[in-house]
Simulated assay, not measured.
Amino acid sequence: MTVVLDDRPLPHRLGLVTLATDHTTEVDFAALPPHGIGVYATRIPFANPVTPETLAAMAGDVTRAAALILPDQDLDAVVYSCTSASVVIGDDKVRGAIAAGKPGAAAITPISAGFAALRALGADRITLLTPYDAQTTQPMAECFEAGGFALQAVSCLGLTDDRDMARITHASIVEAARAAVAPGSQALFVACTAVRAAGIIDRIENAVGIPVVSANSATLWAAARACGVAGALAPGQLMRLP
């Protein structure tokens, strides 16, 4: 018989560069394959605690990690799944490192996707909630302000191990969001790809009364659109945008 091959197993290819310690990103992105997007992940070295120094140490590994995903084959997009490292290393540098490893792929970070998502929602006055300590939260707050967002409030939960951040209960995330949101905020941004917020965005939005964007909901939204897929891939007002 003659074996007939499809051009590729799925119409679109998305690469994920996740931290060695990540428990959450691949689970959140499991929503995409039914939409014709193959999700292909690799890991990048990381050692806790989460500090500006340990985050910056990943800078030299991003290009190599991106290049490891389906070598010599094109990807529609590559997501680097670390919010705080995107800030500490520099968002432009991270996306440049992705492009060096996978030329032609859309380079997506939680910061670039988060900014785009908030703007798509028409939100420029926001509350920022992070699971980090103050030392790691401060550069992120400065990054949002430099991006043109007016921070109505900044809250952090004081954790320094991303494995603990992945264990924050859904109820605790909702309550932290409720406590964090300040009057006048047009949206809440929940930082950190380890935090399990993407699957419960609707619960958080019901609690706080404004749109909510998490690190993973933003990158999922941006990655799907880079692949030409729109629609409600996950809960939340962001996913319902045209």
Rank of each mutant, 00 (worst) to 15 (best):
A198D: 00
Q135M: 10
G148V: 09
A171G: 14
Q138L: 14
I168P: 13
F149L: 02
G148H: 13
A141F: 10
S155I: 01
M165V: 01
T137C: 11
V190S: 00
G148Q: 12
A198N: 01
G158L: 00
M165A: 06
A150Q: 02
R167M: 03
Q186R: 08
E145L: 00
F144M: 14
I200T: 13
A177F: 00
Q186M: 04
D161H: 09
R178H: 13
I173G: 03
G158Y: 01
R196T: 15
E175Q: 09
R196P: 15
I168E: 06
S155T: 06
G147F: 10
A197R: 04
A176H: 12
A134C: 11
M140Y: 12
V195R: 06
A180D: 02
P139H: 05
P183N: 03
A177Y: 02
A194N: 04
A146L: 05
A197G: 11
V154D: 06
S155P: 01
T137L: 11
S155M: 03
G184E: 01
A134G: 13
A176N: 13
A182P: 00
A141N: 05
C192L: 08
S172Y: 12
A150W: 00
G148N: 11
G184K: 00
T169D: 11
A187R: 04
F189A: 09
F189H: 09
V195F: 10
V190D: 00
I201R: 11
Q135I: 09
P183E: 03
D164I: 07
S185R: 05
A141M: 05
T160P: 03
V154Y: 06
A179C: 02
M165N: 04
A177N: 00
S185F: 06
D162H: 02
F144E: 04
L188H: 09
G147L: 08
F189Y: 15
M140C: 09
A180W: 02
A180Y: 00
E142F: 05
H170A: 14
D202T: 13
E145N: 02
S185L: 08
T169A: 13
F144L: 08
A171Y: 07
T193F: 07
I173S: 04
A134Q: 15
A191S: 15
T160Q: 08
V195W: 09
A182T: 02
D133G: 14
D161W: 04
D161G: 07
S185N: 06
D202K: 07
T193N: 14
A198T: 02
M140H: 07
V154Q: 05
